[in-house]
Every structure is written in structure tokens, then in C-alpha cells.
Design a binder for these strands. Structure first.
Lengths: 299, 299
DNA sequence: ACATTGGATAAGAATACGTTATGGATCTAG
DNA sequence: CTAGATCCATAACGTATTCTTATCCAATGT
């Protein structure tokens, strides 16, 4: 039982077929067939049920999968721990799309200055995909909106922010301070796609207040929403951090009267995986960017 | 980083030199040199400090040692778990010398009848060596006298037994029932070597009672002690289980008056290692042999 | 029925790994 | 202090393993 074989086995399980796994491993398909055949001979039991071209794990195969995942994780963590000089290496950070462009540039810039030799990876993922990536050890840190289903993960809240109403410049609500929701019943709204967790947060906020926005369009990107608002397609709700990046004079951001809708931004990681010095340093960077008293330039 | 290399690395650490480790691994010395060189290149740091012929682990090497032990243990346990059919395989049992020949034959015989295909290993070890073997995963189960320093291990008491006074047949104390210690002050004693934990138990019992036996000889084996007693060299204290095996009429076993000295026999195992079905079955066998109501023939 | 997809097998090729031979450094003993 | 012994590193070479290419066979689906 050697490590390369275990890795191959896991890839096969992950991809469902030998052929696709072979591509993922960068080897030929027969190589995997041979590795698995050897492993099965070694264990004395088959690992897959080959019913035609349906590939299914046997009971033994399922048990091996669990153990192999532990083994590979332990080996990879060991390699990372021993190679960890706090200066070079790789750091994979993920964030949800409604945070990434607004909050991360500051910390990323500061981190890069402090750690110029690091290969920094940034992944934009939905909350669900981000949690999966954290659990699988594909990324070191994830920045997202709390709370989430955090089994096997740890989280640290960074800061809270309000949601704002955004209206086109010159709109009747553009002046006059905080707006009450009941003044918006006739207004058309451009909302964010449901794939974003922010969209769900806005929806539940509106439902709590018995407000049902008149939907006139959806977009998958916050930036697009902002452009649509400027073009007069409707109003929208956006997080505070999106305002800070908005240099256009065609949009005006107005606070909402009463108890403002808020979201909590936090950082998550996998406590069962090795936390590199780089990861800890980046978390510190996130913390200091989150402190309102001493804000990192959120350019 | 492959498994064979990690195993070699651990062997080198264990044996202190490449050369001896090579013998233990059954390969040539240059093979290990090359493996380590490759591993060091891979990690980017040396693992050993070669100061002359003194071989010392670097800090990184020390960290790798810990991790490598975990990895190898996990891999070995996985292989054992998957190969575990509850019928075939290997089972390594250890016991201290003052228990092994007296208590184990019964359970061993019963187990062998139920599991004829198992390769059964029995190791006779001192308490200290036994605990080390359990911690290292060299043996699956250990039978010994409780309590012991059981860090990282688990134990289950099986039964208690008394210590008896053994005297030669025809001795003045051979008849007349329980003997008070103060009647033994003038008697010479043949004691067990201090390497045995039983010897320490007897010593502390005597000290509690302010009894200082007149020592006239020491032996490393309980069987030898018994023979010496028969030959009139002196008296001795032996555990109850040693009496049951004694078919000679040259020795008489006499209980000690007052609070009798007792020892607890138990079985220990390593909860961090995979407990095979065979190991669990043997533990069950030990339990039923320990039950006084339904004693397995302690042949 | 026939094309397509996916895995097994066989034979040759590349690579990795272990062996033997040997050298150099260090510690020990006479 | 020198001779010998011990021990690790290196180089050259042979072998063994493992991958690749080519091909086949079985199953699935249109």
C-alpha cells in the first residue's frame, strides 16, 4: 500500500471513473487499472463493484476511502508543516462573490507586501462550495457571511455591516436621509441572483418586515446590479462595502430607517488541517482590515 | 514522500545509525542514505545532524518522526482493518512472566480451538517492556498486574488473587492453617528477582506489615523459586495461580493470616491502534477464564 | 444493430530503486 | 600518534517496478 496508489484510488472515487481520474492524475488509464488491481490483490478483496460500466465502491472500498483520506491529509499536512518557513509557499484563500472584490483587495495587498514570495491563490466560490473546499482542504481560509453550517470547521467573526438602499442619482429618495420601507412599495427592484447568500439575507429581511419588493430584474453580479440601478432599471439593496468601492456619481446610497438589515462577515478554516504560518498571518491581516478604528486602505 | 521511505526513516531513528537500520530493514546501507537524501531534498531541510559519526535528529527531523509514526500507524491499522475477517491473521499477546505460564494456557487453548487459522504470538515481557510494546503497537494485548502507569493505554481488570506462603512438605508450618507473619521472622526466604513486578508487590506488602524477610537467595523464575523451596532453601511468597499448576507433593501452600496480600490481574491494550476482531475475541476469552463461577480449565 | 464509453490485458519503454564497490571522515585502541 | 574500525556518502551499474501504447471486450444507449 503506497501513497501514490492511495491518491489514485481517491481520485477514482472522486471522479467516478478510472478514465476521468486518469486525466486528473495526469497518467494513462491502464496505470490506474494496474494500481487498483495490485491494491486489491494486496488486500485480498475487491474495492470496486464493476457492474458493467457502473462503478461502485464495495464495503471494503468505502472503509478504505475514509482511511485513505485521513492518511493523505496527514501526509500532506506533514509535508506542509515541515516545509513551512512562514515566508515561501502557497496560500489558498476563498471568498464569496459579494465580499471578494470589496473587502479582500486591502488585506491581499498588505499581505503581498509582507510576503512577496508567496504563491497566493484567490478563489471566488458560493458559500456552499466554499465550505466544501474548506472541508476538503482545497483552500486554507474562506471569507464569508456568518452564520453557516459549520460542521468540522471553525469560524471567527470579523465585522458587521449594514445593507443600504441604492437609488439612481436624482431619484426622489436620493435626498432626505433614512428611508422607510413602506415608501418603497411602488418601486421596481433589481435583485441579486438566488445563488448568492446575500440574496437570501435580503429576502428574509424583507419578509420579516412584510415588505415584498416589486422585482423587475435579477443579476448574478453585484456590479451589474449597481449599473442597472444607475440606468434606472430599479432600486436595490447592497452591502455597505459595495458603496465604498463605488466612485460613480450616478448612484446614491441611502440608509434604511428602523432596524437596519445587517450581515456578519467572518473567516473560516479547517481545524483538522495544518494551519500554516501564512494562513495565520493572513487571518491577522483580515482582522486588522476589519478593525474600523484603524482601517487598512480598502482600495 | 512515500511510505517505504518514512518507514526507513523511523528505523534509522530507532536504531541510531544507518548501518544498523539497514540490517533491520533488510536492505543495504546506501539504499537508506539515498532515501534520506531524497527525502531531505524534497523537504528542503536536513533531517539529521551528521556531526562526525554522531547522528542526531534536527528539529525538522524530530517533527517528522512524530508525524511519520502517526502515518505509519494509520496505514498499518488500515491494512489490518481491511484484512480483518475475524478468522485469519496474526494476534500478538504479551504477559509478564509471573502470569504467563499460569493463567494464559487456558485462554490460549480455548482461543486456538475457536480460531485455528490464526498465527498466535506470545511474548513474555516485564511490565515496563510490555507497556512499551503496547504503546508501539508491537503487541495487541498485554496481561499484567494492575495498577500500572497506563498513559495512552487502556486496561480492564480481570480478577484478583491472593499471595500464599509456600513451605516445603513436612515443614512445621505446613499444617495448622493460616500463618501470622511474626512467626516467620527466623525463617530464610527465597525471593523473586527484582525485575519482576511481583517482587515489588511482595516487598511493599512486607514493609506495610513491618516484616523484613531473612533473604537467603533470589531467582529470576517463579518455577525455580518453587524448586528451591522444595529443596529446603527457604520459604517464599507466590501467587495463588502458581499453586494451581503445582502437582508436586513436596510443597505446601499456606494462606497468610490477617489481611492477605493480593494482586489484581488485568489486560491492557492501545486504544489508539486498531483493535482486531481477534484481539477482541481473545479479550473475551480472558474474561471468561477469569470468571470464578465458570472457570476455564486452567490446565 | 451499431457506435460509444469505459475497463482490462499484453508487450515494450522509461524510470526509479537497490546493489556493489569505494572513498573519506571520525572515533578508538594499542 | 598511528592503525584499524566504524559509519555515511557517492558513483556506476543492473534489475525491478511502473508507466505507456496498442488492442480487446463488455455494456450501454440511440
Amino acid at each position: 500500500m503506497d501513497l501514490a496508489t492511495l491518491r489514485s484510488f481517491l481520485k477514482i472515487v472522486e471522479h467516478g471513473t478510472f478514465t476521468r481520474a486518469a486525466v486528473a492524475c495526469g497518467v494513462s488509464q491502464p496505470a490506474l487499472s494496474q494500481q487498483v488491481a495490485k491494491l486489491e490483490a494486496e488486500l485480498g478483496t475487491p474495492l470496486f463493484e464493476r457492474q458493467g460500466r457502473r462503478l461502485k465502491l464495495t464495503e471494503t472500498g468505502e472503509r478504505l476511502r475514509e482511511r485513505a483520506e485521513q492518511i493523505v491529509a496527514l501526509v500532506d499536512d506533514t509535508a506542509r508543516e515541515l516545509a513551512d518557513d512562514g515566508r515561501t509557499g502557497r496560500l489558498a484563500v476563498a471568498a464569496i462573490p459579494t465580499i471578494a472584490p470589496y473587502f479582500l483587495p486591502g488585506p491581499l495587498k498588505a499581505f503581498r507586501e509582507q510576503h512577496p514570495e508567496v504563491r497566493l491563490e484567490l478563489h471566488e466560490l458560493t458559500t456552499e462550495a466554499l465550505l466544501k473546499a474548506l472541508r476538503q482542504g482545497d483552500v486554507d481560509l474562506g471569507v464569508l457571511a456568518l452564520p453557516v453550517d459549520g460542521r468540522y470547521l471553525e469560524f471567527e467573526p470579523l465585522f458587521e455591516e449594514s445593507l443600504l438602499l441604492v437609488v439612481p442619482a436624482g431619484h426622489r429618495l436620493a435626498r432626505g436621509g433614512p428611508v422607510r420601507l413602506d415608501r418603497l412599495r411602488a418601486e421596481p427592484f433589481v435583485l441579486l441572483d438566488e445563488a448568492h447568500c446575500l440574496s437570501g439575507q435580503i429576502r428574509s429581511f424583507c419578509e420579516r418586515r412584510q415588505f415584498h419588493p416589486l422585482e423587475t430584474g435579477r443579476s448574478t453580479q453585484l456590479a451589474t446590479v449597481q449599473e442597472m440601478v444607475a440606468l434606472g432599471h430599479g432600486l436595490s439593496f447592497v452591502p455597505e462595502m459595495a458603496r465604498r468601492l463605488d466612485t460613480s456619481d450616478q448612484r446614491v446610497y441611502v440608509p434604511i430607517a428602523g432596524e437596519a438589515p445587517r450581515r456578519t462577515i467572518g473567516v473560516g478554516w479547517n481545524p483538522y488541517r495544518y494551519q500554516s504560518r501564512l494562513a495565520r498571518a493572513f487571518r491577522e491581516q483580515l482582522r486588522s482590515a476589519a478593525r474600523p478604528d484603524e482601517p487598512s486602505r480598502s482600495r
